[in-house]
Protein backbone atom coordinates (compact mmCIF):
# COMPACT_ATOMS: atom_id res chain seq x y z
CA UNK A 1 0.00 0.00 0.00
CA UNK A 2 1.50 3.35 -0.91
CA UNK A 3 1.65 6.31 1.39
CA UNK A 4 -1.10 8.30 -0.31
CA UNK A 5 -3.78 5.66 0.03
CA UNK A 6 -2.70 5.15 3.62
CA UNK A 7 -3.18 8.83 4.41
CA UNK A 8 -6.53 8.79 2.64
CA UNK A 9 -7.59 5.78 4.66
CA UNK A 10 -6.57 7.48 7.87
CA UNK A 11 -8.59 10.52 6.91
CA UNK A 12 -11.69 8.47 6.23
CA UNK A 13 -11.34 6.70 9.54
CA UNK A 14 -10.90 9.97 11.37
CA UNK A 15 -13.96 11.52 9.76
CA UNK A 16 -16.10 8.47 10.46
CA UNK A 17 -15.14 8.57 14.13
CA UNK A 18 -15.84 12.29 14.29
CA UNK A 19 -19.19 11.80 12.61
CA UNK A 20 -20.40 9.20 15.11
CA UNK A 21 -19.00 11.19 18.04
CA UNK A 22 -21.02 14.16 16.83
CA UNK A 23 -24.05 11.96 16.36
CA UNK A 24 -24.03 11.08 20.06
CA UNK A 25 -23.00 14.53 21.25
CA UNK A 26 -25.69 16.48 19.39
CA UNK A 27 -28.80 15.14 21.16
CA UNK A 28 -26.98 15.28 24.49
CA UNK A 29 -26.01 18.90 24.06
CA UNK A 30 -29.46 19.70 22.66
CA UNK A 31 -31.14 18.33 25.79
CA UNK A 32 -28.84 20.12 28.19
CA UNK A 33 -28.99 23.29 26.09
CA UNK A 34 -32.78 23.39 26.03
CA UNK A 35 -33.08 22.81 29.76
CA UNK A 36 -30.46 25.43 30.54
CA UNK A 37 -31.86 28.06 28.19
CA UNK A 38 -35.43 27.66 29.34
CA UNK A 39 -34.73 26.96 33.00
CA UNK A 40 -31.86 29.23 33.94
CA UNK A 41 -33.97 32.40 33.92
CA UNK A 42 -36.53 30.89 36.29
CA UNK A 43 -34.07 30.08 39.04
CA UNK A 44 -34.23 32.72 41.76
CA UNK A 45 -34.08 32.88 45.52
CA UNK A 46 -37.87 32.67 45.85
CA UNK A 47 -38.02 29.78 43.39
CA UNK A 48 -35.73 27.78 45.67
CA UNK A 49 -37.27 28.82 48.99
CA UNK A 50 -41.02 29.00 48.37
CA UNK A 51 -43.44 26.13 47.88
CA UNK A 52 -45.51 25.48 44.79
CA UNK A 53 -48.36 27.95 44.24
CA UNK A 54 -51.95 26.75 43.96
CA UNK A 55 -53.34 26.49 40.44
CA UNK A 56 -55.66 29.40 41.22
CA UNK A 57 -52.83 31.72 42.27
CA UNK A 58 -50.81 30.74 39.25
CA UNK A 59 -53.76 31.37 36.96
CA UNK A 60 -54.33 34.82 38.47
CA UNK A 61 -50.69 35.72 38.02
CA UNK A 62 -50.70 34.59 34.41
CA UNK A 63 -53.88 36.59 33.72
CA UNK A 64 -52.31 39.68 35.28
CA UNK A 65 -49.25 39.18 33.09
CA UNK A 66 -46.98 38.55 36.11
CA UNK A 67 -44.52 35.67 36.55
CA UNK A 68 -45.88 32.70 38.48
CA UNK A 69 -45.17 33.12 42.21
CA UNK A 70 -43.66 30.42 44.39
CA UNK A 71 -41.22 27.67 43.55
CA UNK A 72 -40.12 24.16 44.31
CA UNK A 73 -38.94 24.32 47.93
CA UNK A 74 -41.48 21.66 48.97
CA UNK A 75 -39.93 19.33 46.40
CA UNK A 76 -36.35 20.14 47.40
CA UNK A 77 -37.09 19.47 51.07
CA UNK A 78 -38.89 16.22 50.23
CA UNK A 79 -36.09 15.03 47.97
CA UNK A 80 -33.46 15.82 50.60
CA UNK A 81 -35.43 14.02 53.34
CA UNK A 82 -36.19 10.92 51.29
CA UNK A 83 -32.84 10.57 49.56
CA UNK A 84 -31.09 11.31 52.87
CA UNK A 85 -33.02 8.66 54.79
CA UNK A 86 -32.54 6.12 52.02
CA UNK A 87 -28.80 6.83 51.88
CA UNK A 88 -28.29 6.59 55.64
CA UNK A 89 -29.56 3.02 55.58
CA UNK A 90 -28.36 1.97 52.13
CA UNK A 91 -24.73 3.06 52.58
CA UNK A 92 -23.82 0.84 55.57
CA UNK A 93 -25.99 -2.08 54.43
CA UNK A 94 -24.71 -1.85 50.86
CA UNK A 95 -21.05 -1.60 51.88
CA UNK A 96 -21.38 -4.54 54.28
CA UNK A 97 -23.07 -6.68 51.64
CA UNK A 98 -20.47 -5.67 49.06
CA UNK A 99 -17.64 -6.53 51.44
CA UNK A 100 -19.27 -9.87 52.20
CA UNK A 101 -19.59 -10.67 48.49
CA UNK A 102 -16.00 -9.66 47.75
CA UNK A 103 -14.70 -11.85 50.60
CA UNK A 104 -16.84 -14.95 50.19
CA UNK A 105 -17.60 -15.14 46.50
CA UNK A 106 -17.72 -18.92 46.59
CA UNK A 107 -20.12 -19.38 49.50
CA UNK A 108 -23.68 -20.35 48.66
CA UNK A 109 -25.11 -17.42 50.62
CA UNK A 110 -22.94 -15.06 48.59
CA UNK A 111 -24.13 -16.58 45.32
CA UNK A 112 -27.73 -16.03 46.42
CA UNK A 113 -27.13 -12.44 47.53
CA UNK A 114 -25.28 -11.76 44.30
CA UNK A 115 -28.18 -13.13 42.27
CA UNK A 116 -30.71 -11.05 44.24
CA UNK A 117 -28.57 -7.96 43.69
CA UNK A 118 -28.62 -8.53 39.94
CA UNK A 119 -32.35 -9.10 40.06
CA UNK A 120 -32.94 -5.93 42.06
CA UNK A 121 -30.74 -3.89 39.76
CA UNK A 122 -32.72 -5.07 36.76
CA UNK A 123 -36.16 -4.47 38.28
CA UNK A 124 -38.00 -1.56 36.66
CA UNK A 125 -38.44 1.27 39.15
CA UNK A 126 -42.21 1.36 38.71
CA UNK A 127 -42.40 -2.21 40.00
CA UNK A 128 -40.31 -1.28 43.01
CA UNK A 129 -42.84 1.50 43.57
CA UNK A 130 -45.78 -0.90 43.52
CA UNK A 131 -44.05 -3.38 45.81
CA UNK A 132 -43.23 -0.63 48.30
CA UNK A 133 -46.84 0.53 48.09
CA UNK A 134 -48.03 -2.93 49.11
CA UNK A 135 -45.38 -3.43 51.77
CA UNK A 136 -45.29 0.03 53.35
CA UNK A 137 -48.10 2.32 52.24
CA UNK A 138 -50.92 -0.21 52.74
CA UNK A 139 -49.92 -1.35 56.27
CA UNK A 140 -49.14 2.25 57.31
CA UNK A 141 -52.50 3.32 55.90
CA UNK A 142 -51.10 6.26 53.98
CA UNK A 143 -48.46 7.73 51.71
CA UNK A 144 -45.37 8.99 53.45
CA UNK A 145 -41.72 10.04 53.21
CA UNK A 146 -40.89 6.75 54.92
CA UNK A 147 -42.48 4.80 52.08
CA UNK A 148 -40.76 6.98 49.49
CA UNK A 149 -37.35 6.54 51.07
CA UNK A 150 -38.03 2.80 51.31
CA UNK A 151 -38.48 2.62 47.55
CA UNK A 152 -35.35 4.71 46.97
CA UNK A 153 -33.41 2.52 49.44
CA UNK A 154 -34.28 -0.58 47.40
CA UNK A 155 -33.06 1.17 44.27
CA UNK A 156 -29.79 2.36 45.82
CA UNK A 157 -28.85 -0.90 47.47
CA UNK A 158 -27.73 -2.95 44.45
CA UNK A 159 -25.74 -0.01 43.07
CA UNK A 160 -23.76 0.41 46.30
CA UNK A 161 -23.30 -3.34 46.75
CA UNK A 162 -21.86 -3.77 43.26
CA UNK A 163 -19.56 -0.77 43.34
CA UNK A 164 -18.21 -1.79 46.76
CA UNK A 165 -17.70 -5.38 45.69
CA UNK A 166 -15.98 -4.43 42.46
CA UNK A 167 -13.67 -1.90 44.06
CA UNK A 168 -12.63 -4.37 46.76
CA UNK A 169 -12.02 -7.09 44.21
CA UNK A 170 -9.51 -5.09 42.23
CA UNK A 171 -7.34 -4.45 45.29
CA UNK A 172 -4.26 -6.71 45.23
CA UNK A 173 -4.67 -9.84 47.38
CA UNK A 174 -1.24 -9.12 48.83
CA UNK A 175 -2.78 -6.17 50.68
CA UNK A 176 -5.13 -8.45 52.55
CA UNK A 177 -2.47 -11.09 53.08
CA UNK A 178 -0.05 -8.50 54.45
CA UNK A 179 -2.66 -7.47 57.01
CA UNK A 180 -3.50 -11.03 57.97
CA UNK A 181 0.21 -11.88 58.21
CA UNK A 182 0.41 -9.41 61.11
CA UNK A 183 -2.01 -11.57 63.05
CA UNK A 184 -5.11 -9.50 62.42
CA UNK A 185 -8.51 -11.08 61.83
CA UNK A 186 -10.38 -10.68 58.57
CA UNK A 187 -12.86 -8.15 59.88
CA UNK A 188 -10.11 -5.89 61.15
CA UNK A 189 -8.19 -6.09 57.88
CA UNK A 190 -11.38 -5.33 55.94
CA UNK A 191 -12.26 -2.38 58.14
CA UNK A 192 -8.84 -0.81 58.56
CA UNK A 193 -7.05 -1.68 55.31
CA UNK A 194 -9.27 -2.88 52.49
CA UNK A 195 -12.26 -0.55 52.90
CA UNK A 196 -10.07 2.56 53.37
CA UNK A 197 -8.01 1.57 50.34
CA UNK A 198 -11.24 1.18 48.36
CA UNK A 199 -12.73 4.42 49.66
CA UNK A 200 -12.47 6.30 46.35
CA UNK A 201 -14.41 3.71 44.39
CA UNK A 202 -16.98 3.17 47.11
CA UNK A 203 -17.59 6.87 47.55
CA UNK A 204 -18.00 7.26 43.81
CA UNK A 205 -20.54 4.43 43.81
CA UNK A 206 -22.48 6.04 46.65
CA UNK A 207 -22.63 9.43 44.91
CA UNK A 208 -23.69 7.85 41.64
CA UNK A 209 -26.41 5.88 43.39
CA UNK A 210 -27.67 9.07 45.05
CA UNK A 211 -27.71 10.94 41.76
CA UNK A 212 -29.46 7.99 40.17
CA UNK A 213 -32.37 7.86 42.64
CA UNK A 214 -32.69 11.64 42.97
CA UNK A 215 -34.24 11.73 39.53
CA UNK A 216 -36.59 8.78 40.11
CA UNK A 217 -40.27 9.62 39.72
CA UNK A 218 -42.18 6.38 39.23
CA UNK A 219 -41.51 4.78 42.63
CA UNK A 220 -42.42 8.02 44.41
CA UNK A 221 -45.82 8.25 42.69
CA UNK A 222 -46.92 5.17 44.63
CA UNK A 223 -45.24 6.00 47.90
CA UNK A 224 -44.65 9.70 48.59
CA UNK A 225 -47.56 10.95 46.47
CA UNK A 226 -46.72 14.64 46.72
CA UNK A 227 -47.60 17.67 48.82
CA UNK A 228 -48.03 21.31 47.89
CA UNK A 229 -46.41 22.86 50.97
CA UNK A 230 -43.08 22.44 52.73
CA UNK A 231 -43.35 19.51 55.12
CA UNK A 232 -40.75 18.12 57.49
CA UNK A 233 -42.63 15.15 58.96
CA UNK A 234 -41.79 11.72 57.64
CA UNK A 235 -45.10 9.94 58.12
CA UNK A 236 -47.22 12.08 55.81
CA UNK A 237 -47.32 12.50 52.02
CA UNK A 238 -44.38 14.53 50.80
CA UNK A 239 -43.19 16.11 47.59
CA UNK A 240 -40.00 15.63 45.56
CA UNK A 241 -38.46 17.58 42.70
CA UNK A 242 -39.15 14.94 40.00
CA UNK A 243 -42.73 14.58 41.32
CA UNK A 244 -43.19 18.33 40.92
CA UNK A 245 -42.03 18.18 37.31
CA UNK A 246 -44.68 15.55 36.70
CA UNK A 247 -47.35 17.69 38.46
CA UNK A 248 -46.35 20.82 36.54
CA UNK A 249 -46.65 18.91 33.30
CA UNK A 250 -50.18 17.83 34.17
CA UNK A 251 -51.42 21.24 35.25
CA UNK A 252 -51.76 23.76 32.42
CA UNK A 253 -51.49 26.69 34.86
CA UNK A 254 -48.20 25.52 36.28
CA UNK A 255 -46.48 24.42 33.09
CA UNK A 256 -44.16 27.39 33.10
CA UNK A 257 -42.43 26.02 36.20
CA UNK A 258 -41.30 22.81 34.48
CA UNK A 259 -38.05 24.23 33.16
CA UNK A 260 -36.83 25.77 36.36
CA UNK A 261 -37.43 22.52 38.22
CA UNK A 262 -35.78 20.50 35.44
CA UNK A 263 -32.78 22.79 35.42
CA UNK A 264 -32.41 22.44 39.17
CA UNK A 265 -32.62 18.65 39.00
CA UNK A 266 -30.17 18.42 36.12
CA UNK A 267 -27.70 20.68 37.87
CA UNK A 268 -27.94 18.70 41.10
CA UNK A 269 -27.45 15.33 39.43
CA UNK A 270 -24.68 16.57 37.14
CA UNK A 271 -22.79 18.10 40.07
CA UNK A 272 -23.00 14.81 41.98
CA UNK A 273 -21.75 12.87 38.97
CA UNK A 274 -18.82 15.16 38.33
CA UNK A 275 -17.90 15.25 42.02
CA UNK A 276 -17.94 11.46 42.07
CA UNK A 277 -15.59 11.28 39.11
CA UNK A 278 -13.28 13.89 40.58
CA UNK A 279 -13.06 12.27 43.99
CA UNK A 280 -12.45 8.81 42.60
CA UNK A 281 -9.62 10.21 40.49
CA UNK A 282 -8.10 12.16 43.38
CA UNK A 283 -8.23 9.20 45.71
CA UNK A 284 -6.59 6.85 43.25
CA UNK A 285 -3.56 9.05 42.71
Amino acid sequence: MNIKTRIAKDRIQLWTVCFFAALTAVPLLAIIGEVVIKGFGQISWSFLTEPTPTAYKAMKAVQAGEPIPGGIANGIVGTLIMVGMAAIVAIPVGILCGAFLAENSKKRSAVIISFLTDLLQGTPSIIIGIITYIWVVVPMKGYSAIAGSGALFIMMLPLIIRSTEETLKILPTSLQEAGLALGANRASVMLRIQLPAAFGGIFKGVLLSISRVTGETAPLLFTALGCSFIRWSINKPISAVPLLIWEFFNDPHLQDLIWGASFFLLLFVLTLNLTAKYIAKKWNQ
Binding site: P172, S174, L175, E177, A178, G179, I193, P196, A197, F199
Partner: peptide, 9 residues
Amino acid sequence: FQRPVPFPT
Protein backbone atom coordinates in the same frame (compact mmCIF):
# COMPACT_ATOMS: atom_id res chain seq x y z
CA PHE B 1 6.39 -10.18 50.62
CA GLN B 2 8.03 -10.05 47.22
CA ARG B 3 6.50 -6.70 46.33
CA PRO B 4 6.44 -4.08 49.06
CA VAL B 5 2.88 -3.64 50.35
CA PRO B 6 2.70 -0.59 52.59
CA PHE B 7 -0.90 0.01 53.69
CA PRO B 8 -1.89 2.79 51.32
CA THR B 9 -4.12 4.85 53.59
